[in-house]
Amino acid sequence: MDETAVPGEAVLTDDGIRLWAARAADGPGGPVILCHGGPGIWDTLEEPAALLREHRVFRWDQRGCGRSQRSGPYSTERSVADLDAVRRHFGLERMALLGHSWGARLALSYALARPARVSGLIYVSGTGIDDDSTWHPAYKETFRGRLGGHRERWEELRDRRGDRTEAEDREFAVLQWSVDFADRDRRRALERAEAMATPWFGVNYACNATITAELRRTSATDGLRDRCAALGLPVLIVDGENDIRPRRAVDSLERALPDVTRTTLPGAGHMPWSEDPEGFRAAAGAFLARLRGDSR
């Protein structure tokens, strides 16, 4: 799908920042807002939006990212407030949230802060609520292994951060994103990463560094676990079996949540909808249908 062809709308936040948002589907089902990963990149969730087209689906670029105004401040709290601005813009009293990777943590944070506005949460390929030292070393090892013959070039571009051209920034991102696909045909994985990077909006590294540092400070706290334990909303956790981020990272979140279902899609990676679209559609669709039934 050509991202430039997606009709967007300008959402104004309470501190005057302009966000890009779009109505991605207008089916008869209830509303779902998608929260993309990063931090610091843009919405690349056109595939799951299409898989959920039987619902009213909304997409947006987080502040400082993609088609949204490139301006801070950057924080989880600020991102939660921005997501609420998107909700208000589209006139939604209550909606389901689907968050991917960092966006899963953002969606969880919104649900914890404003539970009355959320009917349910689909937590896709997140990394849980423990300290990242419990999973990041294994992730790094698998990451380098999956780069294969592209590792030397990736390391060269990594070490030249700040001096890279825009084309080299994009090349670096494509190599990095390619390992998120479990496809054994690495050419196919690179093609999928190329599609994610088209069109290219540029990574906001300041946003990435600021929010990542905040998450490291605020994870693995009793307060966060207690808030998750008190969350009275249904949650679906969706994992790709071959995500290079160890899925055990999510175990503590699953244990903390009182109303949780977990689905692992065999053979899929960090973008599970890409490598098992029917499995993803079935899991997410059944969960959203349950929410609709519960609301009657």
Rank of each mutant, 00 (worst) to 15 (best):
V32N: 02
A49C: 08
R153G: 08
F172H: 15
L12S: 11
A24F: 03
R216M: 13
T218N: 10
M1N: 07
P28K: 03
M271Q: 11
E166V: 15
S178I: 11
E168A: 07
V80H: 04
L265Q: 08
I17M: 12
G103H: 05
S71W: 09
A189Q: 13
S119E: 01
R56C: 06
A256V: 07
E171F: 09
A50K: 04
R225P: 15
D131I: 04
W20F: 06
Y205M: 12
R18S: 10
M196N: 05
L52V: 04
R225M: 02
A256M: 02
D169K: 04
W135P: 10
D169V: 01
L157S: 09
R18H: 06
R59H: 10
L19V: 00
S109E: 14
T76K: 08
R53I: 01
G148D: 09
L257P: 03
V174R: 11
P277A: 02
F181T: 11
G148E: 13
R187E: 15
S71E: 14
W60G: 00
S109Y: 08
I33H: 00
S274F: 09
S274H: 13
L147A: 15
K140P: 11
A229E: 14
R23N: 06
D132S: 11
L253E: 02
A116M: 09
D26V: 08
T134V: 15
C65V: 03
D84M: 11
L83R: 00
G293M: 01
G27P: 03
L147V: 13
G126M: 09
D180W: 10
L288P: 04
L108T: 00
P272I: 08
G162K: 09
F172N: 05
W102T: 11
L236K: 04
Y110L: 09
A286T: 12
E141N: 14
E171R: 05
T263S: 02
